[in-house]
Each structure stands twice: as C-alpha cells, then as structure tokens.
Design a protein around this nucleic acid. Structure first.
Length: 357
RNA sequence: UGGGGUAUCGCCAAGCGGUAAGGCACGGGAUUUUGAUUCCCGCAUUCGUUGGUUCAAAUCCAGCUACCCCAG
C-alpha cells in the first residue's frame, strides 16, 4: 500500500513539478491549494483564482485529486498583523519567514494530516534529513536557489512528515521536467512579492494599512536635505524613493542609514556607505532545527535571502544570542532574520533586534 | 544704490566658436517567494531672456531679468 502525500500547490512550476516527482516515485499524491489572502490585486484580477485554475490543469495532467483550503483568517492573525506591528515599530519584517512556520507548516500541515496524509510536501528548494528521530533542514543542491532562509523559524517537529522533492534539482532542471511532461505551468513566470499576496507597489500597499507621517530627511551631520513620507516606507540601505538629487561638490547616491522613530527623522548618507556596515548584531526568537548549539560557536550566517554565507561567531545569551561578523556586513536590519548554517545544514535562526556598529 | 560674479534637464555638473558629457533623482525592464540591494534601458532639437557678430554660438558682444558676493 503506497503512502499518501499531500502537496501544497501554489499554481507555479516548482510545486507542480514536486507533485509530478512524488507521483513518479509511487506515492499516492493529493494536491492542496491554499488561498490565504482575500483581496484582488490592483488590476482587479483575482490572482488566486488564476493560480487555482493552473492547479486544476496541472492536476488533470498528473491525474491526481486536488482540493482547496482557505487560511485567510489565520494568515491575517498570525502573519499579517505581526507584519504591520513591526512596521509600526520602525522595523522591517519578513512575513514570508513567519508564513512558513505559521501557515504552511502549521494549519496547512495539520489539515493535510487530518486528510490522512503520511507526508506533506512543498516546492521549496531545500532538503531534509529524517534520521534517528530527528529532522534536519538541509540546504538545496542548487545553492543559488536554496530557500532554507525562509524556513529558519519552522520548528523541528513541524518538519517531521515533510518531503522536499526538489532538493536535488536546479531551477532550469525543474522547468525542463515540467516542459518534458507537458505540465501547464512549465513556462509560467516565477511569482514574487509577499507570499500569497503577490507583487505590489509596496508603498501603496502599505499605505492602505498604515498611516503616513511625513518628516525630515537629515544627514548624519545634521543637515536637513529633504522630506520623507513616513518612516515605515524606508529600510536601511535603501536608495530608491528618496527623491534626493545631486549634492554640490560630491558624486554619489543617497542611502538610508538610520531611522529615528521617536523624532520621526530619516537619516541618510551621501556616497559613503560605511555607516551601513556593522560588525555584530543581537538576535532573539532563536529556533534551532535538529541542532544543539554550544554556549559559543562558529558557523555561517545569512542576513537576507540570496546572500552568500558569512562567517560568524555566536554567543548564546539569556534572551537570545550575540552574532559577531568576521567581515563587516552591509545594512543588517532590525526585524529581518539572521539564519545560521554549517557546510550542509540550515541550523536555524533568529530575529535581528539590534545592530552593532 | 555703486562694484564684482553666476545663470546648461527636478538636483549636482561638463562644455571655452563647429552643431548639448557624466552623476543623482525619476520612469520602464531584468533579478528576487520579505523589505532592500544589484543590473539593463530611457530621460534637454536645447543651454535665463531679447537682439547682434559669424558660414556656424551654450560658447563672442550688448540690453533686460533673476540670484549670489563685496561695499553699505
């Protein structure tokens, strides 16, 4: 009797191919589509509906059953409300990290298991080791596509019944498999933007939820050089959207280097990016995946998705950890995640609460 | 008010008689399951204004206008 696996289908190539591969491997595959955001996009089209249509086509081709669930309520309460609160507090949240812990490997997983699944699977580019009763998150073979960054907050228990069929494949290989098997989403453009919400004009999107409070843009020397439209619309290291032009006698661009929430001031630097480079940070909400950290140890870290791993030294503290960088890092940002790695595994991660220069 | 200086794209800024560099900003695209970053493309038939000199002017000359500086 073959095992049953429920695959999260987004309507994209990756999850389509994941389903295809599982079926090839002999599993009893069931597709499950999630709708977690109720709003239609600005063009008026409901992208979720279009995606679900793609799911239908793919499942027809693969000859597997499919269903749809709606976790909008949970998404709003467990991911989006936190996202807004973080912006209000002047930080730059990463909703997709929480989305994995709170939705995909939360309600979605539970729902799938309640359907009688032995396993759940997704189209993430990452790998997993199940051995000795432990579950370790492993980097994808395609380092360029590795998505473990987004899974750093998922609890080890949540990974118990998980399969990642794309672990050994590169994106071009996935597309090739889709094409060879006439899967409808073979040439579909990758989705970007916040997961389940999609590509948006980020400012306009935020403006629907957060009030704008204009204020001054000031240099580190104290010179007022412009006006911002609300601190939450900017993040460290950003240069677009400042609308600041040339400066007399200097060449270079303007960068956001600091936010002063109390005084509603946005600090910028011209040309010189050194104020963006930090040497350490503090993290909290540490989550370790199949790993027992020592009091202090060396490993690698990423401070954003698709950044090469950096060497760091971690020292555990009562309420989190201190992370010292071997090389100064540009624009490490509060609210984002520091994710830890060794050669093979994603060890876990934590939220950045303080940046030390 | 006398004397001097400057006026070139939203902002900096080249140009010095031969038919408008570049950077920033901005717009579009690529990359990207956060936000950013990065990359590519686009972006002044016109040089404060009116005349003049010249085959030819943003470049020379004159008037006007605006701003800046020094004298007051």
């Amino acid at each position: 009797m073959s095992k049953t696996v429920v695959v999260g289908l987004s309507g994209g190539v990756d999850s389509s191919v994941a389903a295809y591969l599982l079926k090839e491997q002999g599993y009893n595959v069931i597709g499950l589509f999630m709708k977690n955001w109720e709003e239609t996009d600005p063009s008026g089209a409901c992208t979720a509906e279009a995606d679900f249509n793609d799911v239908r086509r793919v499942c027809a081709t693969l000859d597997i059953p499919y269903y749809s669930v709606n976790f909008s309520e949970q998404y709003m309460q467990r991911v989006f409300s936190h996202f807004l609160a973080e912006y209000r507090a002047g930080r730059t949240p990463n909703p997709d990290v929480l989305c994995n812990r709170e939705i995909k490997f939360g309600p979605f997983r539970e729902y799938a298991l309640s359907m009688g699944a032995d396993f759940i699977a997704t189209g993430h580019y990452c790998a997993i080791d199940h051995s000795n009763g432990r579950h370790k998150l492993k980097k994808a073979k395609d380092a360029n596509k590795d998505q473990t960054y987004f899974l750093n907050q998922v609890r080890e228990e949540q990974l118990a019944e998980v399969l990642f069929p794309l672990s050994e494949l590169s994106k071009p290989e996935v597309r090739k498999i889709a094409e060879a098997n006439e899967i409808a989403t073979a040439a579909k453009k990758d989705s970007t933007g916040i997961c389940f919400i999609g590509e948006r004009n980020f400012r306009k999107f935020l403006q629907d939820y957060l009030p704008a409070q204009p204020g001054k843009i000031v240099t580190l020397d104290g010179e007022t050089v412009g006006e911002h439209i609300g601190l939450m619309y900017y993040t460290l290291g950003q240069r677009k959207g400042l609308e600041l032009g040339g400066k007399r006698g200097e060449e270079g661009r303007w960068f956001v280097v600091k936010k002063d929430l109390e005084n509603n001031v946005l600090y910028v630097s011209h040309g010189d990016e050194t104020p963006l480079y930090s040497r350490a940070c503090k993290v909290k909400d540490l989550n370790w995946i199949g790993y027992m950290p020592g009091r202090t140890f060396n490993c690698n870290a990423k401070f954003r998705y698709r950044q090469p791993e950096q060497k760091v030294k971690i020292t555990l503290e009562p309420d989190g950890a201190s992370v010292e960088f071997e090389t100064p890092q540009r624009a490490v940002t509060e609210g984002q995640y520091a994710v830890f790695y060794d050669e093979t595994y994603c060890l876990g991660g934590g939220v950045i609460t303080q940046v030390i220069f």
